[in-house]
Design a binder for these strands. Structure first.
Lengths: 373, 373
DNA sequence: GTGAAAGCGCTAACAA
DNA sequence: TTGTTAGCGCTTTCAC
């Protein structure tokens, strides 16, 4: 008997012993909690008496596996309670099946609703979504980009608020990225948004059609304006000018902080300062909700005295009293298109940056009813 | 010259060539976008002229590396723009650094705020959070548990709404889990919540102290009650009974759908049916916001005619008009404790299930002001 | 203090 | 149709 012949059986025994232990553990585990720890592809292969490749084929629903083999493997899988380990799979394939969705803060209802739309769209294409909050800070945005580059995700949907397009374009070349919204976006990078200028014009024109002439704009940043605020204010201004009304700086109601409370204070302060308006275009629904409170606290009636509009069509905009006339972006369309483009990039598409617009709708509700009312 | 001697230089040349290509790519990449594709530990090791082990030590801040070596390695890392690949690391260590946070729906403000608190608490312990939405369905909850078991996360924070505690306890034994909230929780599993019965009593007693006697409960499920609704209704009932008031089934205002609009309809329908109340304990802030609208639509004044209370202290509860008296759970404390316990479990702790309570506070605001007002 | 090599669990050429 | 084997990028004994 040579050393080789001696070693082989010993090795087999080792394997078998390992297997026996695993099965024992399985029984204990099943008895304990119905599951099983650390079952590997190999364990299944051994129990089924086939190779790992075959098990892998069965697991991934590869076609060319004989029915009998497949059945045997599936029996082994069930018996052992095997579940594929994503980490191993991802390391081998280089894909994680995860998309990062980065924006400032999930507690902003628009982003929460966006994330649902994105999750749904991603799910339809076999991806899951890792939410990343940037807190709207440059540091936060850099951290998110950096960590996304660590291979945990296959691509990133990014709604920037601080980062410049130059810096965005400096990201690592192998991380596919799609920009959401009207923030900075380098030309070579894909982006999806709605036409903010046009929508802001539409909403302002709606107030003009109601006969309002002293129309304010509320809820934008008190300091450096965001791209979002700029575009919406541009549309507001255009609509006024087209109707021969000169935009007045006094009719701008900035918020010290972009939040509903910020709008309560910002709008409140201007009203207390004696500024008179009969219409208010708010930067977003949250600002509009704050404006509603600021007006109502002071006994101003909405829409009779002041008609108010929001933006985003968040769920609560239907429930305020009065509920909000608002711009309703096609969130599902936006999410679907963004995910599609990202998945194309992940798939290797290297064409030029595509900058696409999606639809929106002006939803007329109580806070600024239609002229017919 | 032997074959061996011949092969060695060739191999070295191959390595060097590979290296030259990488550096070239690096230059191109840096020129193009400041980053670099696919730099591996090995590439850094080669450039620095050390072994992978040493680079790994430097990357992970291992102490025992000589300063000169460390510096050389760091230079190579910077030069190549190396970033460790999480997948590889995780496969090797068996840890992903990811915690799943599973609940029905991020668009529910309470959950959005919870997720921020959890992200913060997890970040402090070196973990990141993967948000998982179950849509409040049994199928959704099962899918989340199943996918969490696929090795993508190290543990899961789960706020169940449908799954029974028996089924929860059947999950795979190697997936640490902590239950959030008052839903089903098997005894052996850790859980963190606030005392819903006590808090509901506190909020009801607040209304009683205001002299309200016809106090309703609003916003619970029209059909099968959730654990949350049950506990809050129990506290409501206890407070009434302690004050010698018999709870009246007519004063229950269920919602066909747990949403603000659902509450608008539910409360509205009861009011239209002629039910009279002077106080309304709402299951949550969203229901309270809906109730507010239902009341205001009908000209009922809040709090003068009907005092209203919410639950959760969501951001918008400060901005409604009137703003909401509400139960403010210590979200940060809850998140911190839940993450701590989960991380302990991940670390191998196997003690009995711990069921812990965290603080809450009754926030008195306009919708049900203090008696002194 | 540093290096060599054996995995982690899976996939995918290439063989058979 | 199925098996063999060489990685994926990293960590980690165990030597040196």
């Amino acid at each position: 008997m040579t050393a080789g012949q001696d070693f082989q059986p010993m090795f087999e025994n080792l394997q078998r012993w390992n297997f026996v232990v695993k099965v024992y553990c399985a029984i204990v585990a099943v008895a304990r909690c119905g599951g099983l720890m650390g079952v590997r592809l190999q364990d299944v292969a051994e129990l089924a008496g086939v190779s790992m490749k075959t098990v892998s084929n069965v697991v991934r629903d590869y076609e060319h596996v004989s029915p009998t083999t497949r059945e045997r493997v599936q029996k082994a899988i069930a018996e052992l309670g095997y579940r594929p380990n994503m980490m191993g799979r991802r390391l081998a394939t280089g894909r994680t099946g995860l998309l990062a969705l980065a924006f400032s803060n999930v507690t902003v209802p628009y982003f929460a609703e966006l994330s649902r739309a994105v999750s749904a769209a991603a799910g339809a294409l076999g991806y899951r979504v890792l939410l990343e909050e940037t807190d709207g800070t440059l540091a936060g945005e850099r951290a998110v980009i950096a960590s996304s580059e660590a291979g945990m995700v296959d691509g990133i949907l990014f709604q920037p608020s601080m980062m410049s397009s130059v810096e965005i374009s400096r990201h690592r070349g192998d991380l596919p990225i799609v920009i959401l919204g009207e923030g900075a976006a380098p030309l070579p990078v894909d982006r999806v948004m709605i036409d903010n200028v046009l929508a802001a014009r539409a909403v302002t024109e709606h107030l003009l059609a109601l006969g309002r002439r002293r129309i304010g704009f509320a809820g934008h940043e008190a300091g450096q304006l965001s791209a979002t605020s700029i575009q919406r204010m541009m549309g507001y201004q255009q609509a006024l000018e087209e109707h021969g009304i000169r935009p007045e700086p006094r009719l701008l109601f900035p918020s010290a902080e972009i939040s509903p409370s910020g709008a309560v204070q910002g709008v409140g302060a201007m009203l207390d300062a004696g500024v008179k308006v009969d219409g208010l275009v708010c930067r977003d629904d949250l600002a509009a909700i704050g404006a509603l409170r600021a007006l109502q606290e002071r006994g101003v009636r909405v829409p009779d005295d002041v008609a108010v509009t929001g933006w985003d069509n968040i769920e609560l905009s239907r429930v305020t009293f009065p509920n909000l006339t608002t711009i309703a972006p096609d969130l599902d369309g936006l999410a679907r298109r963004a995910v599609e483009m990202l998945v194309e990039r992940i798939g290797g598409y290297t064409g030029d940056g595509r900058h696409e617009l999606v639809d929106y709708e002006l939803l007329v509700r109580e806070s600024a009813p239609s002229a017919a009312n």
